[in-house]
Every structure is written in C-alpha cells, then in structure tokens.
Computed example of a mutant assay.
Amino acid sequence: MIAVTGASGHLGRLVIKALLERTAASEIVALVRNPDAVSDLAAAGVTVRKADYDQPESYSAALKGVDKLLLISGNAVGQRVPQHTVVIEAAKANDVKFIAYTSLLKADKSPMILASEHVATEALLKKSGIPHALLRNGWYNENFTENLAPVLATGAVIGSSADGRVASASRADYAQAAAVVLTAPIEAQAGKIHELAGDEAYDMNAYADKVAKASGKQIAYVDMSKEDYVNALTGAGIPEGFAQVLGDSSENVKGGWLEDSSGALAALIGRPTTPIAKSIEAAL
C-alpha cells in the first residue's frame, strides 16, 4: 500500500489523483488530520486514516500495513523537523519499505531560509536506514498565480529578485512526478535525488509581462530591497515571520537557487512541464 501525508492539501490531493491513474484505489492510503475533509476520496475507494503530527500515536496506527510513503513536507515553517521526525519514526516502527520526501530544489547547497528544515529532514531519513528518494521540488507556478488579486488591483508585481530567474512548474507536474516515483520498483528509486523544476525559466519582468498579456491590464515589475519588500508584505497583513521567508526566497532568486535547466522533471513525468502562462490563464 502507498500512503500520502497531507492528503487534504493542494499537493496531496493532486498526488492522490495522479496515483489513481497508476494504481488501484484500494492500494492508496490518504493520511489526514481530519478524515471528513477527504470524504470524496473515501467514496472513491481510497483508504482514509487520521494522522496528526501532534498525536504521534496516530501515525503509528495510520502506517500499519503501508509499504511506501510519500512524506509531503509540513506547511508549519519552523516546526517541520519535529513533525517529520514523528512520521519517520512511525514509518520505521511499522517497517515501511520506502519513503519519498518533498524537499527543496538544491536544498543541500541553498542559502534559502526554507532549505534548513529540508536538509535536516533529509538527514533524518538517511539516519533512519529506510530506503528513500528525495523529490527536491522547485517553485510552484501557483506560488505566483494564487496571489494575482493584488497584482491586478495595483498593476504591480513586487519583489527583490532583480533579474534572477525562476524555473517553476505546476503543482500537478510535481504531483505526477511523486506518483511516478511511488509506483516504480523500490530498487529503481532508493537513493535517488531528483532535482525538479520547470522547463521554462523567467524573471519577474517576464512574469509581469505574461500577466499583462493574459489579463489585458498594464502590469509592471517593481524591484525593491528585501527590507522594503518585507515591509510591503507585512503592510498588506502578512505575518512578519512568513514575510521574512518570502523576502528571503525572493532575494535568493538572484543567486539562481530556484532555477534549473536539467529537464529532470519533464523526463520523470514524460512530458513538458506546465508553462507559467498556462497557469496564469487558469488562475484568471
């Protein structure tokens, strides 16, 4: 059986959808804090089990009989390592044969704030002795397109990326990659590190131009210092801690930390990745 953590989230649901195209529903386990949130998956024949980071015993029960596990990194920045520890320890106790983990592009070298918890989790996996693969995901198209409302309202994309480029892909692309890895023979994936990113790299000026073309509005990119960008975010109501993470991520685009030209994601899923322009059109 294949289990997926965070199955009620954006990526988790897409992974389940991709898995259903590759294996029987009876072979899939959706792990969620609130089983009622995925009643549709249960109706489709997917096994739904309650699993809560704050209740370690729930993971011990939820992973019984599981052969392969997709550990989708938690969304609580700053709490991921203890949360992931709960999952990995439960997996080891239940003799899970393989874990795939959604890490960050170039995590082992990246100076981004977000990288540290991923590197720590990668180390936990290595220490566990459980065969595993790392899905080092780049940026999602949706990181940008889910925040189009203020862009359209102000006519500006803001950030501190200068002319740095991002090679993003859609969540569905990364989800399909996870499904491919999870349904492959363990011996074919154990030890693999997949550096995954989109086929098309673009800077924020190009992104603004694409939004302008799709929306019919005048949109420009306004580059600013990291400090000013963080202040703009907090002024818009984003919590200080998260604003700092976003500011750090935007600034590190200049160093090429969210750009990759390997084509590994497209090769894994067997098709081109989703262009940012297509995701913009879908969001609009």
Results as ranks from 00 to 15, higher is better:
A264M: 09
I130G: 06
L41K: 01
V29E: 03
K213T: 14
A190E: 04
N252I: 04
I88Q: 06
I130K: 02
V96I: 13
S39Q: 11
S170C: 10
A90K: 02
L196N: 01
Y207L: 13
G241K: 12
D40G: 12
P131W: 03
I280S: 03
Q55C: 04
K126C: 07
P56K: 09
A123Y: 02
Y207M: 10
A283R: 00
T274V: 10
S39I: 07
V48D: 02
P239C: 12
I28G: 04
S168E: 06
A220E: 10
S168W: 03
D67Y: 00
A264Q: 11
E195R: 01
Q176W: 01
M112K: 10
T85A: 13
R33W: 06
E146G: 10
Q176R: 11
L71I: 13
I219W: 00
S279D: 14
A3W: 02
K192I: 02
W139G: 01
K64M: 11
A178Q: 03
V166E: 06
S128D: 11
G12P: 04
Q176A: 15
K127L: 12
Q83K: 08
E89Y: 05
A214G: 07
S116Y: 06
E142W: 00
A120V: 04
A197M: 11
A133P: 00
L19I: 06
K127H: 10
A120S: 12
P35F: 12
I28W: 04
G74M: 05
M1S: 14
A177W: 03
K226A: 15
H118A: 10
G256L: 05
A282D: 08
K97P: 07
M204H: 08
S73K: 05
A37L: 06
K126S: 15
V77Q: 13
Y174T: 07
L148Y: 03
T102S: 12
G12L: 07
L135S: 05
L125T: 00
A156P: 01
Q176K: 11
L182A: 07
G216Q: 08
N252K: 08
S279C: 12
Y53T: 12
P56D: 12
L258V: 13
A25T: 05
I28E: 03
M112P: 00
G191H: 08
L20E: 07
I72S: 09
A267W: 03
E227I: 07
Y229N: 13
P239W: 06
V181T: 05
M1K: 13
I219T: 04
G241R: 06
G6D: 11
N143E: 09
V86N: 08
A51F: 05
V48C: 06
I276K: 01
A115Q: 08
E122Y: 04
L246D: 03
V119Q: 13
S128E: 10
P111V: 10
S170E: 12
G247E: 06
P56F: 10
G45M: 09
M112F: 02
A107H: 03
D163W: 00
V157S: 01
I2A: 06
P111E: 07
R136S: 11
L114V: 15
P131I: 06
L268Q: 07
